[in-house]
Design a protein around this nucleic acid. Structure first.
Length: 424
RNA sequence: GGCCCCAUUGUCUAACGGCUAGGACGCGACCCUCUCAAGGUCGAGAUAGGGGUUCGAUUCCCCUUGGGGCUACCA
């Protein structure tokens, strides 16, 4: 029998990190086994389920590149099915009515044993089981019921889900047994926790996958990071999607909960930015710059972004980093001004730069060198004050590049004695 | 409280029962260098505690401790 797995989120909010990783592990397993990966929306909680959340989940999945097979299933479209099986259990005396709801009737002497792919045999004390509700009085099935019916009908072979469901599994096994269904294989994967070791929540920062897109993360970096959270392969940290599909195995998933490490995610994102085609990063940076500075000059943006390729950790950071390229309204670091003030040198630099044409770094560099020689200064004695004058800070991409990209007009203006950035 | 799961540096992880317990993030130092990055080199840092089993436990068993989960007509 070929592999078929599912991701079964309940649409009560955006796709969060934990759900995304569960989806990811399922997807990796399906793709690696040439199997099927389906999506099932478990919307049987009338109070909390929303259409917006369903769309948010689709968006998150698409952003991560987790494509699914078949049309997504919605449990609320399948109410008659659950009802039918509930009736069947009723007729067989395996369930009973209780004030409008239908409860499963716990058989005598049941064994509560789960075989889990990660932990082998897990035994529960059988008295933890009770006559649990399978159909609510509103006619909707409960999770433990709908889930079993669907996994059976959809021919799911492996259930890979969060280990918060491990305790539910004995109950579900009872339903499989009562209905005469063959249970799938189970793999309960550990939770993702916040840095403080408690359940991940908004308190820990961005928890929905789609927020990371806005923050400037690349989907491949997130994909890679999530895959490495609770799973490892030798000493390797960076994997392409194809490599992950090839190397992923269920048994290599670790059993202990993992804390989400934002620093490591950022580092990985930087790695992916450096690895990406510059054009891709430029495309990703453009909308941020357009929004912040109203620029639509693709050629100019392209030149600017290329200067920051080694400095970006998040694409959104281009906005503050490159501010002085887009406006005269940038902040000036008083400490830098204090440390590198040299008005006379800059006046002479300005005079010499005025004659440079074309205004390219190849032509600019000799100006600095000869000025240093003529004034008996070190190159740094000119470059540092120049940097502060042009950027307002003591750190920037290489000076000659900055000067060329900034352009003659801006450079001469900022080197002028009267120039003060609007922000000062 | 009851039941279940889990336990290697601060974090993510690697280690057929057998190397000096490896790698990565972060941290520190150094190199490179016009600054900041990027890149490179080096360094500090772990088997939770206690009992067993074994010639030998990170690894197997038990207890304790700690963390997490479930305990709904939520999933």
């Amino acid at each position: 029998m070929s592999v078929k797995v599912r991701f079964a989120p309940s649409p009560t909010g955006a796709l969060h990190l934990g759900g995304a990783r569960t989806a990811l592990f399922n997807w990796l397993y399906a793709r690696g086994q040439n199997g099927l990966f389906i999506l099932r929306i478990e919307d049987t909680d009338k109070e909390r389920s929303t259409k917006e959340a369903v769309n948010a989940i689709y968006d998150g999945m698409r952003w991560l590149g987790l494509d699914w097979d078949e049309e997504p299933y919605h449990q609320t479209d399948r109410l008659e099915i659950y009802r039918k099986y509930a009736d069947e259990l009723l007729a067989a005396g395996k369930a009973f009515r209780d004030e409008g709801a239908i409860r499963f009737k716990l058989p005598q002497g049941v064994q509560a044993v789960v075989f889990d792919l990660l932990r082998d045999k897990v035994e529960f004390e059988s008295d933890v089981l009770d006559n649990f509700v399978i159909l609510k009085s509103d006619g909707f099935p409960t999770y433990n019921f709908a889930c079993v019916i669907d996994d059976h009908l959809m021919e799911i072979t492996h259930v890979i889900r969060g280990d918060d469901h491990l305790s539910n599994t004995p109950r579900q096994l009872l339903v499989y047994e009562a209905l005469g269904f063959k249970p799938p294989k189970f793999a309960h994967i550990p939770m993702i926790l916040g840095a403080d070791g408690t359940r991940l929540s908004k308190r820990h920062g961005a928890t929905s996958v789609i927020e990371y897109e806005k923050l400037g993360y690349l989907p491949d970096a997130m994909f890679n990071y999530l895959a490495r959270l609770g799973w490892g392969y030798k000493d390797q940290e960076i994997f392409s999607r194809d490599e992950l599909v090839k190397k992923f195995t269920i048994k290599a998933i670790s059993k202990n909960p993992a804390k989400f490490d934002f620093d490591k995610l950022k580092w990985l994102n930087g790695q992916y930015i450096r690895k990406a085609l510059p054009e891709r990063i430029i495309d990703l940076c453009l909308p941020y710059l357009t929004e912040a500075y109203g620029t639509h000059d693709f050629e100019y943006v392209s030149k600017v972004v290329r200067l920051f390729l080694d400095r970006l950790v998040l694409t959104a950071e281009i906005v503050p980093l490159a501010k002085y390229f887009f406006t005269d309204d940038y902040e000036v670091d008083p400490a830098a001004v204090e440390k590198y003030s040299a008005p006379k040198v800059l006046a002479e630099l300005k005079a010499r730069l005025e004659k440079v044409d074309p205004f390219t770094k190849e032509n600019i560099e000799p100006v600095f060198k000869s000025l240093a020689t003529d004034l008996g200064l070190k190159l740094g004695d000119i470059i540092h004050p120049c940097r502060v004058a042009l950027t307002g800070t003591a750190s920037s991409p290489p000076m000659y590049d900055v000067i060329e990209v900034l352009g003659k007009e801006r450079v001469l203006n900022r080197l002028g004695a009267g120039f003060k950035p609007a922000r000062t």
